[in-house]
Amino acid sequence: MKINFIDLQAQYRKYQGEIDEAIHAVLESSQYIMGKDVTQLEAEMCAYTGAKHCISCSSGTDALLLALMACDIKPGDEVITTPFTFIATAEMIAFLGAVPVFVDIDETSYNIDPRLIEQKITPKTRAIIPVALYGQPADMDEINAIASRHNLTVIEDAAQSFGSEYKGKKSCNLSRIGCTSFFPSKPLGCYGDGGAVYTSDDELAGKLRQLMNHGQGERYKHKYIGINGRLDSIQAAILRVKLKYFDEEVPVRAAVASRYNELLAGGEVVTPFVKPDRTSVYAQYSVRVKNRDALAKRLNEQGVPTAVHYPIPLYRQEAFAGLSYDAAEFPVAERVSSEIMSLPMSAFLTVEQQKYIAEAIHGK
């Protein structure tokens, strides 16, 4: 049985007519940069998330960079975040000369553990970046409360969680700033790189928009040192088509995850846990297993692709060797990174494929 880790081909075939038409409309218009599709996408994103402003940009990584720049994060500042995520989160902190300060994760959600945050706050701390890992928001009420007590900014890294909800509010609109990614494999993905920053702060939105476009508010008038972080019109057009159907795919993804949970119950893997006051869009369906490498090898031999998100915590990455962290500070991240494994996941994964995967895991 052929199984794709993420079935982007099936999704494209379903919406192919509309996607092709949208791409050709951009080609006919020749408005490749900052075209009308970008403006319309941003308005649709605001309506979807509830945020007052959406500033689209060239990637999820640039979204984080723009958010940090808009908050005036400077060399020597400290930003608290999780060590168990993709490097982009901490990379952008370090890119600006600031210091990523890692806090261990919660054993059940794999998101940053808010109970451990305050002990890492110092006079140099300027912001907290919780990551909504695997599509499930972090404990945002607790994190926002901590930030309020210490006059810090919370930047929600929602690169994996666009479309999820926390206590009735959409991810990307759970703090002063939210950032997301439209990388092709995300629950809402384009056909290249793309991202967005969300805020309901008018002043901050104006600054973000200028920083995204070389720091200029008017043509050739540059208030800030910015970046070339624009989302191109073709990607915006593709996202507009996919966004129309996104709310149809999200519950299907949840149903796929629920079916996995049932099929894998009683076996050797620990299935994901989603807290009852929030939802997940399951950017990945990640399980924990003691004999990960052996199981991955067995599944691969049976045509089932797997991945590891993420095998090396950030404090053990060579790029952050200068921070001199002791792995003993992060017992949960250490355990999870050695056991985590992601299975095929998409709204187009069939029941038959899931049963095949589960039987392979159970050794049948």
Rank of each mutant, 00 (worst) to 15 (best):
Y48D: 02
I80G: 00
A88P: 08
G76C: 12
S58F: 09
L41R: 00
A47N: 12
A63Y: 02
P75F: 14
A51R: 06
T81P: 05
V38L: 10
L68E: 03
G50R: 03
G76K: 05
M45S: 10
Q40K: 11
I87Y: 09
A67D: 06
I93F: 12
L41S: 00
F86C: 15
D62F: 15
T82R: 01
L96R: 06
A70D: 05
V79D: 00
V79R: 06
C57H: 05
D77I: 06
M92Y: 04
M92P: 03
K74H: 13
F95E: 13
L96M: 10
L66G: 02
A63S: 15
I55P: 00
E44W: 09
P75E: 10
E42H: 08
G50N: 10
K52F: 06
L66S: 03
T81Q: 05
A63G: 15
G97F: 10
L65H: 14
A43T: 15
E78S: 02
K52M: 09
Y48R: 08
A63T: 04
C57Q: 00
K74Y: 11
A67N: 04
M69F: 07
M69D: 01
S58H: 06
A47T: 12
G60S: 07
E44I: 09
A94N: 12
D72N: 13
K52S: 14
L68V: 07
P83V: 09
L65A: 07
P75Q: 03
A70E: 05
A90I: 08
A88W: 00
I87W: 04
V38T: 12
L65K: 12
Y48G: 01
A88Q: 10
A98D: 00
S56M: 04
E44G: 04
G50T: 00
E78D: 10
G76A: 12
D72I: 08
L68Q: 01
S58R: 12
Y48I: 06
A90D: 02
T82D: 00
L41M: 04
I93T: 08
E44A: 15
